[in-house]
Design a protein around this nucleic acid. Structure first.
Lengths: 334, 334
DNA sequence: CTGTTAGCGCTTTCAC
DNA sequence: GTGAAAGCGCTAACAG
């Protein structure tokens, strides 16, 4: 098989002694082609190394079999797992992934133009979309599923891990264990999940009549340590419970607490995270955190998207998954 | 702007009172269009929410502006960084990324068909390609750059981090520091880098007249601990230097050494890794490892690929980058 | 079951 | 500088 570039269905047709459309049919599943004919065609195609041109197919069928995945924070340890899962699941359904990686969550606008140009069949977005951007998807008829965020102002299909439930479990556990001086390390102001989780924690603490100190981080390891130091100052070192909106910052805080500040975790300071990334379970950390059910969430996201690609006017649905409380050794709970 | 789906250049032409080809020109850079005309066209396009159909463009220009990235082990902590870098750099050059994520390094064959179908302009591959597969790229005229592996049997453009140099630095340092009983934890047999690094270490040890015990891991945290236990048995607990072919396994081994086996690191047991992932630098680990120059490597990969897309018959070139020795606290060196 | 015939939305000569 | 016309490689009626 001397597979060469630019082999067209015409080349195959000529070699198999059939019409070009016969070749086309031979490569579609439900098409009516005589077994013998198909065999000849397939043989010719193999010999020439023919592969149908997906670009040309897309042009005519208006189905590119391309889905855009827009993700910020690819480096944030949690998303690689999500991305791998999504890609593999989509590819099981014959759908290819066009990847857009954002430096900051709010950089979406620039990539949106490209998304339209490639006529993707749908999109899974884990980045903050403005109302106008949400509307643009709907106007252009591009099915959309939001990952870990919901449409602000507009109803959109989405799958999320429940922040309220998660933070509530953490906060309640900490409060009942007798902690009194709380600090929270949030995410950057433009991060949807960051804000949501921080608010969830703040609200639940308020419910218990507790007011916590709050600082922002960048979701990374360094932010955790830095945030903790700031909070220690703000609380005159009285801090005894630290809630971080993601695991990475919690891990950074743990290291800083132990090695720099000299606070024992969890006996002197309880620390919690969120996500359930793999390092959270490492011996050195054993983080108390909320594990997102990534498999179920990605599966749901893919299923919802494919459904909407098939039937564009299915109404928006929000699927909210409860995370699992991982009772590690970084916090005294209950 | 009531941006709707399916706006074509004809719609824009009609609204602007020009021909369709004028619209096409208005969107190409060096085309000859009167400024006034272009202005009218751009205005009409904006009003309609027109975006040129990249699929149609690709069909006619034979340039999809799509590049395939084929990666295995997306979850392996090192590749997310690479992927994010590659994607962002490519997008700076107007190139989109079609992502293929492999469960195992040897699963390439299945995705190759899709790569051909989408008529990508090129590919960056961090997975094991057989000679036939390498030849297929060349036959189809798809420029290819290998990431952290070289063409086996066929010359192919590639960028790598030097395994020999890296392992040599580690081995020499360990030997000179007086270690005598060596163990190596390699990767799965089908991993290119895994084998390369393991061989590099073995050869360098042989150069010093030392023979090491060898076990395989799966590149993950658990493998590190398991590997260490096996090696302890194989050496009657005499093991005093452990070389892991990646950081994740080294981290797993460190935790197991400290918490399960009760060996002190590095005073009783030195452990080294490879890659320089971010957890390697965390306080709890401070791993002694070789950091790959990811920025320079991704930049080189992108540059090489784009060059070859412009001029398809540039001869293959291998670019080998030296890693940086990170002298952490997990090993006694020199 | 199979061939013929139109295009999909765009770029690109080629005249004007 | 601009429009008309001819496709890129394929699918999808539509006859036969």
């Amino acid at each position: 098989m001397s597979e060469k570039a630019g082999v067209t269905s015409y080349d195959v047709a000529r070699r198999a002694g059939v019409s070009q459309s016969a070749v086309s049919r031979a490569f579609r599943k439900g098409a009516s082609v005589a077994p013998a004919t198909r065999a000849r065609i397939v043989e010719a195609a193999m010999a020439l190394g023919y592969e149908p041109n997906a670009i040309a197919q897309g042009l005519i069928t208006k189905r590119s079999n391309l889905v855009a995945i827009i993700i910020s924070n690819l480096t944030n340890l949690y998303y690689p797992e999500v991305l791998a899962e999504l890609t593999q699941r989509l590819s099981l359904h014959g759908v290819r992934v066009l990847l857009f990686s954002l430096a900051a969550e709010s950089d979406v606008e620039e990539v949106l133009g490209q998304v339209w140009r490639y006529r993707v069949d749908g999109a899974i977005v884990a980045a903050r979309l403005s109302t106008e951007q949400l509307v643009a998807f709907s106007n252009r008829g591009v099915p959309l599923v939001l990952y870990n965020r919901v449409g602000e102002g507009v109803p959109v299909a989405s799958v999320c891990c429940d922040s309220d439930l998660g933070e509530r479990a953490l906060v309640d556990g900490l409060v009942q264990a007798g902690h009194t001086c709380f600090g929270i390390i949030g995410g950057p102001a433009d991060s949807y999940v960051g804000e949501e989780r921080a608010n969830a924690a703040i609200n639940r603490l308020a419910h218990h009549g507790i007011k916590a100190e709050f600082v922002r981080g960048q979701f990374d390891y360094e932010s955790g340590g830095a945030g903790l130091k700031t909070l220690m100052e703000l609380t005159d070192s009285k801090l005894d419970a630290l809630i971080c909106v993601n695991d990475l910052m919690a891990i950074g805080a743990m290291d800083t607490a132990r090695n720099i500040i000299g606070k024992r975790v969890p006996s002197e300071l309880s620390i919690t995270g969120f996500d359930g990334v793999s390092p959270a379970t490492w011996e050195a950390y054993q983080l108390t955190t909320i594990r997102q059910p990534v498999r179920r969430m990605t599966q749901a996201a893919v299923a919802m998207l494919l459904e909407r690609i098939e039937s564009p006017d299915i109404s928006p649905e929000q699927r909210l998954f409860a995370g699992e409380l991982l009772s590690g050794r970084s916090a005294r709970l209950l």
